[in-house]
Design a protein around this nucleic acid. Structure first.
Lengths: 189, 189
DNA sequence: TGGGATTGCCTAAAAGCTTTAGGCAAGTCG
DNA sequence: CGACTTGCCTAAAGCTTTTAGGCAATCCCA
């Protein structure tokens, strides 16, 4: 019998593709085995359990997203950086819905601390350098940006804004305008 | 044998409680049967399938949330209304995490159109009456508010802001301040 | 190059969830 | 009181996860 040459990395990548095709919550060890034309139990030599598979996909997605965000941020500042960064999230979620859902998978604290999630937070803070905010307002602003990006993308992905005018594209642009204005004129406590 | 007196409503309520205890994604027809000390198959006389159970719990949560929001909004306007409304979401999510997750369950379009989700949108628009926004900016603002509330609550529930200062309470207050300011000074296109 | 050790995928099996089919008895109503 | 309806039951199939143990392919070293 020919060996399939499975590795955790290969399985993770295939799992990510599967997630984009059928949704992250339908990613299953069984389905993955089917795709590699291999018996289910075989995968358990490479993965501790299905939780590990999901965690690995989540980490992959966080890395990819952080890489793209870092690219987008290079050489930009102020509103330009804000927009570029936000667009990376939105585009990634639209082109890779399963991976995006994976990136929102609840990781245990230690894993999260090792993940690219940390880079995301650092980049968000970097964007705020273009605005005149000091602690603790900077942290509040980081949380606001995280909430808006995540919230908007999630609602859009859930179909919340489809088939209604004005279209989502326009709202997104105007919301970024509003955020930029908010950051420039952050209210005193 | 004594009949358990099951009804879809009773099962839905029990399912909602179960969701708050163990998480919405762990709500299962089997577990529910166990709680009523009844065989699993029996529940299928009252529920079409497990999807219907989840949908019903989602609708229940949306109703409860809309009722509370309506209460909170009564007699308030402007920032007062904004804060009260936002706090309802956040408090509901914290006291009923399973139900809140259920409220975010993806409903098919027809079901969604019948749901209390419509009231949520109407109430968000009502809040904006206290601000000077005309279409299409009003719609953009509705989407911004929805994104922030949902996004913040979700991140907070995921533990994103715990064990870090400043505490979440303070960020929430300052973010609502910022949103209020943003709505009062909505940037021109 | 041959043989031992390792590794990779296999079969088998248990346990849990979902869903359907068909049956009997409890409650209801004329 | 008997017939009808309804509610919960047993049975069973199909899917997923996970563990245990086995054989064969590959690797590596003498």
């Amino acid at each position: 019998m020919v060996r399939a040459g499975l590795t955790p990395e290969l399985l993770t990548r295939a799992g990510a593709e599967l997630a984009d095709e059928v949704g992250f919550d339908r990613v299953t060890v069984s389905e993955l085995a089917r795709r590699f034309d291999v018996k289910v139990a075989s995968l358990y030599s490479h993965l501790k359990n299905s939780q590990e598979l999901k965690t690995r996909i989540a980490l992959l997605a966080l890395e990819e997203l952080a890489d793209r965000a870092a690219d987008a941020l290079a050489g930009r500042a102020g509103k330009d950086a804000l927009t570029a960064f936000a667009d990376v999230y939105r585009d990634y979620a639209r082109t890779h819905p399963g991976r995006y859902a994976a990136a929102r998978f609840r990781l245990d604290p230690e894993t999260a601390a090792q993940s690219a999630g940390v880079r995301h937070a650092q980049m968000t803070r970097a964007i705020l350098r273009g605005y005149d905010l000091t602690e603790p307002d900077q942290t509040h602003a980081v949380r606001l940006l995280g909430s808006v990006f995540h919230g908007y993308v999630d609602l859009e992905l859930a179909g919340g804004f489809s088939h209604s005018s004005p279209d989502s594209e326009e709202s997104w642009a105007r919301i970024l305008d509003a955020l930029d204005a908010t950051l420039r004129n952050w209210p005193q406590a």
